[in-house]
Write a protein that binds this DNA or RNA. Structure first.
Length: 1110
RNA sequence: AGAUCCGUAGCUCAGCCUGGUUAGAGCACUACACUGAUAAUGUAGGGGUCAGCAGUUCAAAUCUGCUCGGGUCUACCA
């Protein structure tokens, strides 16, 4: 006896996986999957580097499953897919983690701990959970090269970043500018957008808001206003929720096309007559309709209703360049200090009339929009608040006061209120009220942030915006909306990339400049820096760079780079600007930096750029997806990736985001340990399209395990059991499919159709559809139809043609399904494949991951065959439901079923699967009633698609007429091929093809119907049928006893039986059948007195003795 | 505030692109069968205002618009 198929003892996915992992490791299966494809077309994949300073979560498992399954699939499709792993090691989260651990804050760095020590801590912390990550990578079956990963803190990596920066610098795309950034005075630090987007940073708060009155200056520009007012008091109304910015006010911004009005009224606080300007659309916010053109003469402070009157109306563009008197003048905020030409009316597009007054108080220091418009008009800038968050000196009574309660002072008095009070007293406030709005807070101190001007370095991404948009259109986004909507939109509205971070642990910006800022240099390589180090030492002398002269610079991080002094062409010392760069630059530069390009690996880089495929969470859209794209466009005028799959979030089963805080995170380790990586991966892929948010529920994995893997497992076990008995090892010649039985040709046709479908979906990056198709095949077709119907073929009869056909067919199905499943669930598929291949040696390969993905054999696909098998399945299902209805069990044979056929083709189809149906539902024969048979009653309904187009509005009437058709009408239509209907006096001719006729009923029979298929069952049980039923019942009981006693399936038995005469008679009639079924030589009839097991056959008691032979 | 995805049975999802008259599947539940694959399987049953409103159409879960609810990203508003 040759090799045998390994039979499992139970479905234990985690144990199988453990075994496979050991095999993979000892055989170097992953490495081989790549080396075996040496010379093949590369398929380029980029691994988005995870940060190993946090534990991996289940959401990492989904994105990595997506990465892995595509790489495995492409490998099986014949590509060589190298996957270099990587680690993201810089950035704020790491620093914050270290600070928390050491119990220090940012301010302590350089004081309580040196920068060198601090960065050393960061370097240690960064790969803290690397073991855990490696572990989950291995256990989940993610094949990625972790032996030689790129690590972003390495000098080589940083050197490439510097090279890129210097390239951008040369192209004039790297520049320094002031920018208004979120800043936390309480924490004394600028905040990154990441920090600002921590949950809970935006809070609804009530602030004192004020509508301030800015007094217009009477000059040529504004003359028309004063003329209209007939007064020397004209005010611009501007609203603010941050009155503390008013001392820094330098402009008022209006919309060019917004309509404004000059209104005569009274100040509600001082009751003095005033003329105010505001947007027409916002009049209703400040004035009641009843007060319009009201009683000015009779107004006094007791009267609540303000009278008002529109004096004139004009566009914003008409008041551009009007001037006004400074609202809160002090020594510190003079126009001279502002350094521009302030206190003018400006025009810009960001002004709306949604709230406020349509005139925007503009303080360039404290708002991004303000800064932009201020620069456009050169109104200068005033920063009347220091970095601690308090007013600077020279602001009178406000100097030294905190603009918000940053120091948790118990007796803190809101300076905003005081400013409002002052304005009220001075006839400069028109409306003061508490206003509730959403305002960002520092996540660490819980204090409101403010927007503050800080120096920063930018990459001028806006210069290549159009090209980025254009190239984006060539990227295959999954789903499309991410690329077109979310990403495309983001590109359209892009601003320059703010690179600066004032932190410690990150890539230093390689720019050195002289103290006066007149000369600067951007270093592009370590060699260039080392050369500069020596040169500066030579030129400047002394101790300059003395620690770095010998070996050059050894670590490109702080504080070492900051020790380096370079020398300018004019001989002046240059120091590095202190900024670090955004970590997103690190990851966006990964295509180049992972290869230390252009210093090394030029050829490798050229072959691996751009990527064919990347995949990450959709939250990376503005992160990695963006930075990859931006850098590729700026450096090489190319996309960085051709296909991008963005997966959605993994939510908990209630739809909430998983977070440590809520304690609803799913631990991937225990999940995989309990249910297996295969089931987990299969669940994640098939449950929902990857880009939809997924509600993660352990129950779903359990279901996958039971239903999909359980079925596959059972099918394999079934095959192995009998193949081992018969010694089938595929050594016989492959029997041409055409020579195999109908059912074999059918399952093979379905199999090839499946291969075709799965290939299309996989090529389209739709693994969910592929997985669902496979599931459907395994469950519906393979297990519940093919195996079920063919069971007997495997264990009955001799080892000859039909049996070999069955084995070859089932083997091919199992083998092919495994190959289809392999990319998604790599363990179990490999396991089963190896078990199969060990016996047959069909493939000269160690692992399923080293062979090709199946390609569909079109010649085997027979659509008509698949269609008629569907007919057989439907028919069987209907007959079974009829049996149920009249309570006749399937083991009781029945005489016949009756099927009305609507056309000869249908009959032909049914006849070909007649035997299957008969066997499946245990009937002796099938009779067909042809179309002309008047015995059947038919029903008719319109073919809505066809008739709807033709009839349009008459559809309803025709539908009603058809519903009333008699049997004669239908017969007439069928005979003539058309029928003339009278629709409200108009003759409408309908044709047979425009209707759907089906049989409804067969008088005197119990019928069931599904679609056009109707079946009727003859439920008469004749004595012969009853006897046969008894025989089958007995067989069933004996088989159960055999099994209960643990007999082998081929053990032969002796049977002793005592039965009442009525039963004895019918059993004797089927003696041969019974003996053959239960593997007995003969039935020995014994008297009642003998011992034995009591059983019942159709409610008749009998005694039975089953003994194993020999 | 903008962009985007989602909303169909108790739960997880199909169907929507391309409109067609009984809206499906699995799980769960109930009942009955079946049992040489048994951590299975079959049949039947209950369970739906297809988030809501309006429009287009002979016909809307499906197309359009608006609203509501949920998620994510981005922005932050004087």
């Amino acid at each position: 006896m040759g090799a045998t198929y390994r039979e499992f003892k139970g479905l234990n996915l985690p144990a199988f996986e453990q075994e496979m992992l050991e095999n993979w490791a000892s055989q170097q299966a992953f490495e081989k999957s790549i080396s075996l494809r040496e010379g093949a077309t590369p398929f380029v994949f980029y691994e988005g580097p995870p940060s190993a300073n946090g534990m991996p979560g289940i959401h990492h498992v989904i994105s990595r499953t997506l990465k892995d399954l595509v790489c495995r699939y492409k490998t099986m499709k014949g590509f060589q897919v190298k996957r270099k792993g990587g680690w993201d090691t810089h950035g704020l989260p790491i620093e914050l983690g270290v600070e928390k651990e050491l119990g220090i804050t940012k301010e302590d760095i350089g004081k309580k701990i040196t920068v060198e020590e601090y960065n050393k801590k960061c370097r240690e912390a960064v790969l803290r959970y690397k073991d855990k990550w490696d572990d989950i990578t291995r256990k989940m079956g993610y094949w990625v090269d972790l032996k030689d990963p790129y690590i972003t803190f390495r000098n080589e990596y940083i050197e490439t970043l510097w090279w890129i920066l210097s390239e951008l610098y040369k192209k004039g795309l790297l520049y320094e500018s002031v920018s208004i950034q979120p800043y936390s005075p309480a924490a004394g630090t600028g905040l990154s957008s990441h920090e600002l987007n921590q949950p809970g940073t935006y809070k609804d708060v009530k602030d004192t808001s004020a509508v301030a009155m800015f007094k217009a200056v009477d000059n040529a520009k504004s003359k028309f206003l004063f003329d209209a007012a007939g007064d020397d008091q004209v005010f611009f109304l501007a609203w603010t929720t941050t009155p503390w910015t008013l001392p820094s006010n330098l402009g008022l911004t209006v919309g060019a096309n917004i309509d404004y009005v000059l209104v005569k009224t009274f100040n509600p606080y001082t009751h003095l007559p005033v003329n105010v300007i505001l947007a027409k659309a916002l009049l209703g916010k400040y004035f009641k309709e009843e007060g319009k053109d009201g009683d000015f003469e009779g107004y006094n402070e007791k009267i609540k209703l303000l009278p008002w009157k529109i004096l004139t109306e004009f566009r914003g563009s008409q008041i551009e360049e009007c001037r006004y008197e400074q609202l809160l003048p002090y020594e510190a905020n003079s126009a001279a200090n502002a350094g521009g030409d302030p206190f003018r009316v400006l025009v810009d597009t960001f002004v709306t009339t949604e709230d406020g007054t349509g005139i925007v108080h503009t303080a360039p220091a404290f708002g991004a929009d303000d800064y932009k418009v201020g620069k456009k008009y050169s109104i200068g800038i005033l920063t009347m608040v220091d970095r601690q968050g308090k007013f600077v000196d020279g602001l009178g009574e406000f100097s030294g006061r905190y603009v918000k309660n940053y120091k948790d002072q118990k007796d803190y008095e809101d300076v905003n209120v005081d400013i409002a009070v002052k304005l009220k007293k001075e006839n400069r406030a028109f409306k003061v009220e508490k206003y509730e709005h959403n305002y960002p807070h520092c996540w660490r101190t819980d204090k409101p942030i403010l927007y503050y001007p800080l120096d920063a370095w930018f990459i001028k991404t806006t210069a290549v915006r159009d090209r980025m948009v254009e190239l984006n259109k060539t990227i295959n986004w999954k789903p499309k909306s991410t690329g077109e909507g979310r990403f495309g939109n983001w590109l359209e509205n892009m601003v320059d990339w703010n690179l600066s971070r004032s932190r410690y642990w990150g890539t230093p910006l390689p720019i050195w400049r002289t103290e006066d800022g007149a000369e600067e240099i951007c270093i592009g390589s370590v060699a260039e820096l080392n050369e500069g180090i020596r040169k500066a030492s030579d030129v400047l002398g002394g101790d300059v760079n003395k620690n770095h002269l010998h070996e050059g610079i050894l670590d490109l991080h702080k504080p070492f780079v900051d020790e380096i002094v370079l020398v300018s062409p004019s001989g002046k010392p240059m120091h590095r600007v202190p900024d670090l760069i955004d970590v997103w630059f690190d990851s966006g530069a990964m295509p180049y930096a992972q290869w230390h390009f252009p210093f090394e690996n030029k050829e490798i880089f050229e072959k691996s750029f751009p990527a064919d495929y990347i995949a990450e969470g959709v939250d990376q859209t503005r992160g990695w997806f963006y930075t990859l794209h931006a850098l590729a466009v700026m450096l090489f005028d190319s996309v960085a990736y051709k296909t991008c799959v963005s997966n959605g979030l993994v939510l908990d089963k209630n739809g909430n985001k998983m977070s440590k805080r809520l304690g609803n995170v799913v631990d991937p380790f225990t999940t995989i340990e309990n249910y297996g990586a295969d089931a987990t991966r299969w669940y994640l892929v098939t449950n929902a399209s990857p880009w939809e948010n997924m509600k993660f529920d352990i129950e779903g994995i359990r279901e996958v395990q039971r239903k999909f893997f359980g079925t596959l497992y059972n099918t394999y076990q079934f095959f192995a059991l009998y193949a081992n008995v018969d010694g089938f090892t595929f050594k016989e010649k492959y029997i041409p499919v055409a020579e195999r039985p109908e059912i074999d040709r059918w399952i093979l046709s379905s199999l090839q159709s499946l291969v075709k479908k799965v290939t299309v979906h996989m090529d389209d990056y739709e693994p969910t559809q592929a997985g669902r198709a496979i599931e459907d095949f395994v469950d519906e077709h393979l297990s519940n139809w093919y195996v079920r119907l063919c069971r007997r073929r495997f264990w009955k009869g001799e080892y000859e043609q039909d049996k070999i056909c069955a084995y070859q067919t089932l083997y091919e199905c199992l083998e092919t399904v495994c190959r289809l499943v392999a990319p998604v669930s790599p363990f179990f598929s490999d396991m089963v494949f190896r078990n199969l291949n060990a016996a047959t040696g069909r493939f000269n390969a160690e692992s399923i991951h080293h062979i090709d993905f199946p390609s569909a054999d079109e010649s085997v696909i027979d659509p008509l065959l698949e269609e008629r098998m569907q007919l057989a399945q439907d028919t069987s299902s209907l007959v079974l439901s009829l049996r149920k209805k009249v309570n006749i069990k399937v083991r009781q044979p029945l005489q016949k079923v009756l099927i009305p056929v609507l056309n000869p083709a249908m009959q032909e189809q049914l006849q070909k699967v007649e035997d299957l149906i008969k066997a499946e539902v245990n009937v002796k024969g099938i009779e067909y009633l042809d179309a002309g048979n008047s015995f059947i009653s038919k029903k008719i309904k319109p073919n809505f698609v066809a008739l709807g187009k033709k009839l349009g509005a008459k559809m309803k009437a025709v539908s009603a007429l058809l519903a009333n058709f008699t049997q004669e009408d239908i017969a007439s239509l069928e005979k003539q091929g058309y029928y003339d209907l009278d629709v409200a006096g108009e003759i409408v001719r309908i044709e047979t093809a425009e209707t759907e006729i089906s049989s409804e009923d067969i008088p005197g029979w119990t019928v069931a119907a599904k679609g056009v298929l109707t079946v009727a069952l003859d439920i008469t049980v004749t004595p012969d049928l009853e006897a046969e039923g008894n025989a089958r019942e007995l067989v069933n009981r004996i088989q159960k006893i055999r099994k209960d006693n643990g007999f082998g399936i081929s053990d032969r038995i002796d049977l002793k039986l005592h039965a009442p005469d009525i039963l004895k008679e019918s059993l004797a009639q089927f003696k041969d059948y019974i003996c053959a079924e239960i593997l007995a030589e003969t039935i020995e009839w014994v008297p009642a007195s003998e011992t034995g097991t009591d059983i019942e056959v159709n409610d008749i008691p009998l005694k039975i003795n089953v003994l194993k032979k020999g």
